[in-house]
Amino acid sequence: MVNNQSNTNNPRLDYEYRRRKNAEGMRIQVATFTLMIFFTVISFAAVAAGFSKWFVIPVILLLAVIQVGFQLYYFMHMGEKGHEAPSMFMWSGIGVAFLTILAFVTIIWW
């Protein structure tokens, strides 16, 4: 069986297109990584600077959520085609996770 993923019926052109597409994808991944490092540095700096905890806690939690979104949707490709079932699995897991944490922080307060 011939394995050409041809769209143009020109294997060499398709190959070069795919290489360029992969390289472009990698540049986006590196940009994502830079943002993740940036968010991490802001989180640590906010804590080190000693701001009020009512300011710091929401900010660092928000940055963590954004960073995890980057990890899931860029590094793990969860938003790409063919990831409908993985999305459902993860969002179901996140839903149960949210309920579990909500229950533990609101019911247990002694």
Binding site: A85, P86, M90, S92, G93, T100, I101, F104, V105, I108
Partner: peptide
């Protein structure tokens, strides 16, 4: 493998949530 592994990761999310919830409490 791809589908099964993502299903496993959904379960891992729940598992770690219970550990986080316990820690916070």
């Amino acid at each position: 493998k791809f589908l099964g592994f993502w299903f496993f990761l959904g379960g891992e999310t729940v598992l770690f949530a219970s550990l986080f919830a316990t820690y916070i409490a």
